[in-house]
Computed example of a mutant assay.
Amino acid sequence: MSLLDTLNQDMKQAMKNKDKQKLSVIRMLKASLQNEAIKHGRELNEEEELTVLAREMKQRKDSLQEFEKAGREDLVAGLQDEIAVLTPYLPKQLTEEELHEIVAQTISETGAASKADMGKVMGALMPKVKGKADGGLVNRIVQQQLS
Rank of each mutant, 00 (worst) to 15 (best):
L3F: 07
L4E: 09
L7Y: 12
L7P: 00
L7I: 10
Q9V: 11
Q9T: 13
D10M: 05
M11T: 08
M11C: 09
K12W: 10
M15R: 14
M15P: 01
N17W: 07
K18G: 03
D19N: 14
D19Q: 05
K22G: 04
L23T: 06
S24I: 00
S24Y: 03
S24T: 08
R27Y: 07
R27T: 13
K30S: 11
A31C: 09
S32A: 15
L33M: 11
Q34R: 15
E36V: 03
E36Q: 13
A37S: 14
K39P: 01
G41P: 02
G41S: 11
R42A: 13
R42C: 04
R42T: 11
E43T: 08
L44K: 01
E46K: 15
E47M: 15
E48F: 09
E49D: 12
E49F: 01
T51W: 05
K58P: 00
K61E: 12
K61A: 08
D62S: 08
S63K: 07
S63I: 02
S63H: 12
E66T: 09
E66N: 14
F67C: 01
E68D: 10
E68K: 15
E68A: 14
K69N: 12
R72T: 02
E73W: 05
E73T: 15
L75V: 12
V76P: 01
V76Q: 03
A77K: 13
A77H: 12
G78W: 00
Q80R: 14
Q80E: 15
E82G: 03
A84G: 05
A84L: 11
A84S: 15
V85Q: 03
L86S: 02
T87P: 02
T87G: 02
P88T: 03
L90N: 02
L90E: 05
P91K: 12
P91L: 06
Q93A: 14
T95N: 09
T95A: 09
E96S: 09
E97Y: 08
E101V: 13
V103M: 07
A104P: 00
Q105D: 15
S108I: 10
T110P: 03
T110D: 04
A112D: 02
A113Q: 13
A113F: 02
S114T: 14
S114I: 01
S114P: 00
A116N: 10
A116P: 01
D117K: 04
D117W: 02
M118P: 00
K120A: 07
K120N: 13
K120T: 12
K120D: 11
M122C: 03
M126V: 09
M126L: 15
K128N: 06
K128H: 11
V129T: 09
G131K: 04
G131S: 06
K132R: 15
A133R: 04
G135F: 10
L137H: 01
L137P: 00
L137C: 03
V138Y: 01
N139E: 10
R140W: 06
R140F: 08
V142K: 03
Q143S: 09
Q144V: 11
S147N: 14
